[in-house]
Simulated scan of single mutants.
Amino acid sequence: MTLSDEERAALEFAALEVATGKVIGSLHRRHRAEEFKKFLIKLDKEVPADLDAHLICDNHATHKTPAIKRWLLAHPRFHLHFTPTGSSWLNLVERWFAELTNKQIRRGVHRSVQALEMDIRNWIAAWNTDPKPYVWTKTADEILERLASYLNRIPDSEH
């Protein structure tokens, strides 16, 4: 699910703890490597130091700049995994963004970006009081089988 420009202006980055459903969000007005690095620093502080952090990211250039690569080299417990273009459904935090959009943002009236940001902060706080992990309803084999079937039907899929 894609976010509107207004929503994107308020919340750029979020991490979903797959096992518990807890979300760590970071609000920024811009979507640059500088803001992504701030988000990584926040995660480094909030994720227990004895855990590796595997982040599923889209292929946005923000995630691949030399500054980010240097930061990742200095913080080897962080591992970035990139989804193929058009495959945001593989990233469960996108499901959370859809809930945020449908249950909070679209229902609210935001007279300013600050009001929108407050709604998002409140949503994250409320969500984290009783987080729920997302559970795939299909097995990996069922998903891959359906994907292979789809790719065989479309031209130029190289399958």
Rank of each mutant, 00 (worst) to 15 (best):
P133D: 03
S149V: 09
W71A: 05
F36C: 11
V135S: 10
N102K: 14
D119K: 04
P133L: 08
K132Q: 14
R32W: 02
H63E: 12
D156A: 09
H28W: 03
C57V: 15
G108N: 02
P133N: 07
A126M: 09
G21V: 09
K42N: 08
T139W: 06
E34W: 10
T83L: 03
A53V: 15
E158C: 13
K45F: 13
N91T: 10
A115K: 05
K132L: 13
H110G: 01
T137L: 11
H28P: 03
P155S: 01
V47W: 01
Y150V: 09
H60P: 09
D156Q: 12
L147G: 07
P131H: 10
L116V: 00
D5P: 04
P66E: 07
I120D: 01
H81P: 04
H110S: 03
L100R: 03
W96A: 04
A9T: 02
L92E: 09
T20R: 08
A14G: 14
W123V: 05
P133F: 11
R8G: 08
C57E: 06
D119A: 07
L27I: 02
S88P: 10
A67S: 11
H81W: 04
I120C: 01
I105D: 02
Q104D: 10
D50H: 02
K132M: 09
L16N: 06
A98G: 14
D52H: 15
L116W: 05
T139S: 15
G21L: 10
R107D: 07
L16I: 05
D58S: 10
S4C: 02
H60I: 10
D130M: 04
A33C: 07
N91R: 02
R30D: 09
R111D: 08
R32L: 03
K42Q: 15
E99Q: 14
T137H: 13
E12C: 13
E94V: 09
A61W: 11
I143H: 07
L147W: 05
R77Y: 00
H81E: 13
S112I: 00
E7A: 15
I120E: 01
L43M: 01
A148V: 02
E17A: 14
F82D: 12
A98M: 08
V109F: 05
M118Y: 12
N102S: 11
A53L: 15
E117H: 04
E94A: 04
A148W: 00
W127H: 04
A98S: 14
N59T: 12
V18E: 09
I105T: 03
T129V: 13
R77A: 00
E117K: 00
L51D: 13
L16M: 08
N59F: 11
H75K: 05
V109K: 01
T129F: 01
